[in-house]
Amino acid sequence: MGEFIMNNGLILAIESSCDETAAAIIRNGHEIVSNVVASQIESHKRFGGVVPEIASRHHVEQITMVIEEALAQANLKPVDLDAVAVTEGPGLVGALLIGINAAKAFAFANNLPIVGVHHIAGHIYANALVQPMEFPLLALVVSGGHTELVYMKEHGSFEVIGETRDDAAGEAYDKVARVLNLPYPGGPHIDRLAHEEGEAVPFPRVWLEEDSYDFSFSGLKSAVINYKHNMDQRGEAISPAAVAKGFQESVIEVLTAKTLRAAREYQVKQVIAAGGVAANKGLRISLETVFEEEGIPFFVPPLKLCTDNAAMIGAAAMPMFEAGIRGNLMMNGRPGMELKSWV
């Protein structure tokens, strides 16, 4: 399956690593021809989080409709395509398997090569859909499952210079939202509350070792839980807005400071934010402000390219395809897949 060449520069991409069933068609790695996402959020809301078995069931219900919709919106037929790309990992294994098996069946039936893409590489390459990536580059990836600082010296080169040692930033948001009785997913609610007028409850900042780019959010989460517990014991009501503000200030200060220090040390030409939490207004403003002062171009994709989608998988697949990388029909879901360079 490796001898194929690009004719139209068209890649069909499929993503099903968590709770979105998504398909997109990307031209030349940067132009979105179609981008379809079937979200399951409404179904998972009642459980207060993503239930893997329920997610897998929804994926198998939606998958062919989503792919058909991506083709229909692009007004293309399978014969027009040059390759199929799919998220190979990391993610929920049962969820990944649906996208992967659909991609393999589609690729086989239509005699197309297949490319397995790392989900985080996808989030980073979402930026290629907005403006050309310039190297060396630093990416802050923040989502419900990930918090990572990734240094890229060229296309396909990834060095994870920092990552969370416990909870992902988005996970901490969801847990704090639950403490505050906010609906799932909690991130946007905390972001909104944090922008209301008023004082912030002071919470600690976790910096870890002086030279570390790693993160830790579980201590902060515990501090919020303890605060609520103590107030409950004293019979005092908490102000959800003050808690949200204090929590968000702590998260943003640490994320911003470490990203800035890394950008300086690695002397990057571009800083990008990626992942669902990159849609957070407070984080966006904070990063925009410091990098404007620093004189380093900073970009963050629009909301629908920050949350899970297949367009970003197609964007990441293009340089992989050009580098000759191909999967095969044995491709399996890799829930703990590591982000590795392909150059």
Partner: peptide, 12 residues
């Protein structure tokens, strides 16, 4: 789900 996903995608 694996059999059904393969069958569904091929048939479609």
């Amino acid at each position: 789900r694996i059999g059904v996903t393969l069958a569904k995608t091929l048939a479609w």
